[in-house]
Every structure is written in structure tokens, then in C-alpha cells.
Design a protein around this nucleic acid. Sequence first.
DNA 1: GCAAAAGTGTTGGTGGTACACCCATGG
DNA 2: CCATGGGTGTACCACCAACACTTTTGC
Lengths: 245, 245
Amino acid sequence: MSGAETGRQAAPAAARPAPDGASAGHEVLAVVFQIRGDRLCVLLWRRARPPYEEHWALPGGRLGGAEGLDGSIRRQLAQKVDVRDLAHLEQLETRGDPCRHPRGRILATAYLGLVPAGIDPVVPEDTGWHPAVDLPDMGFDHADIVHSGRRRLRAKLSYTNIGFALAPPEFTVSQLSRYYSAALGHDVAATNLRRVLLRRGQIEETGGSVASGRSGGRPAALFRFRTRRLEITDAFAVLRPPAGS
Amino acid sequence: MSGAETGRQAAPAAARPAPDGASAGHEVLAVVFQIRGDRLCVLLWRRARPPYEEHWALPGGRLGGAEGLDGSIRRQLAQKVDVRDLAHLEQLETRGDPCRHPRGRILATAYLGLVPAGIDPVVPEDTGWHPAVDLPDMGFDHADIVHSGRRRLRAKLSYTNIGFALAPPEFTVSQLSRYYSAALGHDVAATNLRRVLLRRGQIEETGGSVASGRSGGRPAALFRFRTRRLEITDAFAVLRPPAGS
DNA sequence: GCAAAAGTGTTGGTGGTACACCCATGG
DNA sequence: CCATGGGTGTACCACCAACACTTTTGC
């Protein structure tokens, strides 16, 4: 391996970086979110040794020699924190600041992963869920990466059906509105959320319903997402192609 | 400047760090777009040797040991293709398929760069602009990456002010509508584009105007973008916070 | 005056929030 | 029958596409 096709270079002197100290290492990280108790939480583990001893960090690790980036983060989440129930996974960004890791030059490609509400994966002792709005002390640039993940999730909730990855297979509209509230960080009225998602064809009634609680109230209808694959449901409001095309 | 690619020399043991055989190399690429002659074009260079001899490729190259990703692609564009007038640059995606490069495992982080219309950077002999809708034979996964870039640009034209990076400092609305048409791939009516961008506060009149051509017509007013930094001008139509907050 | 290109006014549709109101259930 | 929560109907508004119309120029 390690062919090293150097691309082209103009100014020999400058272009010839250090004896190719180039990428000495590459790691893959994941921002894994789940709604727990009406709050958006992220999965973190606590570092037991330096650097950043006692700080919290994103799950992930070194990229293996023969695996792709997606495969690598899936493997590491399964092996290290026993998370196998990702309903959605997408690449977030790659950080390459030479100083981001005190041990030397390590690039990191971060992913956004979503676990549906309601399930409770068994995670190791040193691993836990933390509210995304109230992060503990975190090492490296990981807190920044969590914020990127939140922004991405917020945006996609608005124009895709990504809600399927936050909600369990069946849910009532009022439950769903709580998931949206938690992820978006502001109130979402159930009454309108129902109409928006129905109009867009994102959700449909299952036919079932849920008995009312002891305090009464009309039984709630159950819904499900029509598909569990990411789709863009709201092409941008503006600048779409003219009708006749 | 910068002629052909100078010898590739297999990176010595230096590139051999990762204990687990992890990342042997990392390159940085750029999809640089410019509107030329009412078409969206991308900057490519023609490979003189294998792999993919005679095919076209995205500009870029190995990441230097002491530079960040952004810095690296800026440096390489400046040195290798003499492009220094990027009005916008953002990270696109990172590809890590172990087989994407026949010479071995090389990760690639791709950027999207935009050069305003009207300027004509001097580029090397083997480098040229190609219509993005009619790409020549391209090596590696570079054609895919160009498509990612187009999708990203199209989306951002709809909800940000990224048009500032396609247009020259001053322009008429009808010119601007041609830039938008080229980048979006469909007609954009000048009459409505003007209103949309004015309402959103993206553009403003400079006061100047352009004399009409020999065929007559009312002189066109000149406009400029109010800012040349990326801003989201159209928060998603849906699911915004309630009014009272 | 006539053609050409820029710019304005207006209409109609879509898709959203807000809020009043009706429905089904438990006590 | 009342409180509680689910569900529907409707008013209103922002935003945009389409198109007719007006303005300003060259010839």
C-alpha cells in the first residue's frame, strides 16, 4: 500500500512537506443522539487516562487499514459501546487542525448517528448519555463536534423525514411533538406538526390507538413513518424549477 | 505555472506510522466552480501518467504534515493551479473507501470552492474549465465528488446568500439570473429573482447603471451583495420557533 | 413610432402559525 | 358533568410564480 502518488507540485521547496509527516493517523468519531426523557442526549465515554483524563469524549477510534469510514464507525460503535440499533448514520465533517490532538497529528472524521427513542442499548460502565444542552467537560474538539451534530439534526428535521430515526416504530402525535421539541430546542405544537407531516406524506396512521390515561382524555391514534430511509420532503421553498418542467 | 506532476516518490517509512496500519495517506481535493459563458464549469487537470493516465482529475494533493485541511487546499490551489480568488470555500465530504485509489489506501477530503464570474485566473497548461453537466472522463471517484459539489451549491443557493461567490462585485439582475440558471440547471426569471433577493436583504442597488446595448432597451441598474460572507437568509420555512420567543 | 430590455403591480396558490372549537374518555 | 387530552376547522399571513403592464432606451 502506501503508494504515495504525490500529485503535482509547483514550488518544489514549499510543496515538499516534511518527510511526508502527512497523515500519521486517522480516527473516526460519532455523535450518537437519542431522545431520553424528553431531552436530546449524546453518548459519551469517560477517559481514564491522559490526554484529557477524566474528561468525556465521543465514541470512536482509529480507522482500520482495510475498512471504509462508514464501516469503521459502525464497527466501533458495535464493539466498544454495544450500539447496533442506529436508525440513521451520516457523515458530519472532518477535522484536521494539526493541534487538535496533543499526541500528534490525527485527523478525525465525525459521523452523526441516531438511535430511536424507547430502546435502551446496554453500554459499558464508563459510557453514558448526557443532555446535549448541558455537556460535561469534554476533551479535544469533541464538544464542537457535538454542536455540529445538533445543527445538522435541527436543519434536517425541518426539510427531511429524519424524524423516523428519533421516533420508535409507532407513536402518537403528542409523543412525536415532544421528540421534535427536544431535538429542536423549542416548543412544537402537536396540532400543527400532525398536519405538516401528514401533508408531506411523512407519517400515516397505523389504525391502532392508545388508551387514555387515568386522568381521562380521548385515546390517541398511533402513527408511523411511511419510510425509514432518509428523504427530502420539502424541497426548498424558493427557487424551484418552473412549473412547466 | 506548475507543469506536470513531478515524480511520485513512494513516501519513505515516514508515512508508515499508524501501528494498526491505519491511514497511510490523506489528500485534499477541491471542486472549484465558476460560471463561464452562462455555464457552470469546474476546474480540472489532465493526468499525464497512471493511474488514470489521460483522465481528468480534481486539483489538490497530499496533506502536508503541519497544515490544516483548509490551509492545505488553499495552498495547493494557489501553488498548483494559481487560483487565489476563491470567494467561498467549504468542506464537502471525506471519502475513505479502501479501494478508491489503486495505489493503496488514501483518504480524500473534498472542498467546494467558488470563483466569481468575470475573472480569469491563469491556470497551467494541463488545467482547464469543464462544463459541470458534461464532464470528461475522470479518474478515481472524482466525478462523484463533482456531483456532490453541484448538489451542495444548488441547495445553498436556495437558502443562503452564496450567490455572492458566483457573481462579480457588481452586476445587473439579468446577469445574476443567468448565473443562477447556470448553477441551478433551470430557468430563473429575473423579475422574481430581484424581488426574492431584495426581500431577503441579500442584494442592494449600487446606484450605478449600465448603458443599454445597440439594440436598445432600458438601462439596467447595478446591484451588489450586501455582504460577502455566507449567511443563511431563509431559515427553513417550517418548524420555526413560535412567535413569542 | 417601434422593438427591446428593465422594472412594477397584481393575482392566485401554497404552506405555514395560531386559536377556537369539537370529540372521546376517566372519574 | 366536568376535567383532560386528542383531533378538526378556520382565519390569517408570508412568500413566491406567473403574467400583464409600464418605463426607458436605441434606431
